[in-house]
Simulated scan of single mutants.
Amino acid sequence: MIDLIISTISSIIQAVPPFVLAVLILFIFAVRLRVLPIGGAYPVEVEPSFSVQFILKVLHHAIGPMFATAIPQMAAWTLAMRGNTSQVMEEDYIRFAQARGLKDSVIANKYIKNNAMLPLVASLAISIGYMLGGHTLVESIFNYPGIGFYFGKAIAVRDFGLLTGLFSLIVIGVIVATFIAEIVYALIDPRVKLK
């Protein structure tokens, strides 16, 4: 029953475009409930600085765009993890572990979890680059000056220097994420040695 509920919710969330989710988040949490700001990177009355107050205000303003971008990705990862888990559960070593009389919790934690996570760790770097690139429409809806927002501005005025800088940031982010994913992959998979 839990599998059916989670799969259905994940499928629906993944099918919703991020900009539609951004409009829903903005309407529900900013207009109706008034727990999120309507737009901007920080309040106009706050002076930019490295103070804790300013950092908290910036994070508060980033919650809406982050959730609008990350929620569909998390739904996709949930569906991918479900598919990988069902595929791993059909393997012979799982049947052998069950035949040995191991508990289901031991089989799930020791054999299924790590092997089902391996393909997701490999695709993590691509997803990080996708999210780092930002969504131009999402950031425009929230009026949030992120990478996607500036991509839209740079394309509109043909600012090739800014475009080059933004692409460089995304490439560096993907390289760092790939490096971290390789380290995590080596820690999860005992067949890979970390040297």
Rank of each mutant, 00 (worst) to 15 (best):
S10Y: 07
A97R: 08
I12F: 13
I188D: 06
A15N: 03
S49K: 06
N114H: 11
F50S: 09
P18Q: 08
I126V: 12
I141G: 02
L79Y: 04
F179S: 13
E47K: 12
P190E: 06
A186D: 05
T164M: 13
N115A: 13
R100F: 05
I94H: 05
P145K: 08
I28L: 15
L24S: 12
A122G: 09
Y185P: 00
S168Q: 06
M117G: 00
F96A: 15
L59F: 13
L102M: 15
A99D: 02
I128D: 03
I25Y: 06
A62Y: 02
L56I: 09
A75C: 02
F29D: 07
S7T: 13
E47D: 07
A70V: 12
S10W: 10
D92Q: 14
L36A: 02
T178G: 08
S140Q: 12
V174E: 10
F149A: 06
A116S: 15
T136L: 08
H135S: 14
D104R: 14
V20D: 05
M81D: 02
A186T: 06
G152K: 00
I38E: 09
M81L: 12
A122L: 12
G134R: 02
N114C: 07
S140I: 04
P48E: 07
F54C: 09
V46N: 04
K113E: 01
D92H: 13
L187T: 02
Y42G: 01
A62P: 05
F151P: 08
I107R: 03
I126D: 04
A62G: 10
S7L: 14
A154K: 05
I12R: 01
Q14L: 13
F167E: 02
I6A: 06
L166R: 03
D189V: 02
I38C: 02
S127A: 15
R32D: 09
A99E: 02
S127W: 11
S51Y: 02
A186C: 12
I141K: 04
Y93W: 11
V106P: 00
F160W: 11
D104I: 04
A68L: 09
M81N: 03
V46I: 15
A99W: 07
T178D: 08
N84Y: 01
L163P: 05
L26A: 09
G39T: 00
I183D: 05
Q98P: 00
S86Y: 10
S123F: 11
I12W: 07
R95H: 14
A181C: 10
V171N: 01
A76G: 03
E182F: 02
A76F: 08
A156L: 14
I94D: 06
F160I: 10
K57S: 14
N143S: 11
I63V: 13
A186S: 14
V46M: 15
N114R: 15
Y93T: 03
G173A: 05
L56M: 15
V16L: 08
P72M: 07
L102C: 06
I6N: 06
A186E: 04
F179W: 15
A154S: 14
F27M: 12
V176P: 00
R158C: 03
K57G: 04
Q73A: 13
I9H: 05
V174Y: 04
P18L: 11
G134Q: 03
D92L: 12
L137A: 15
I107T: 08
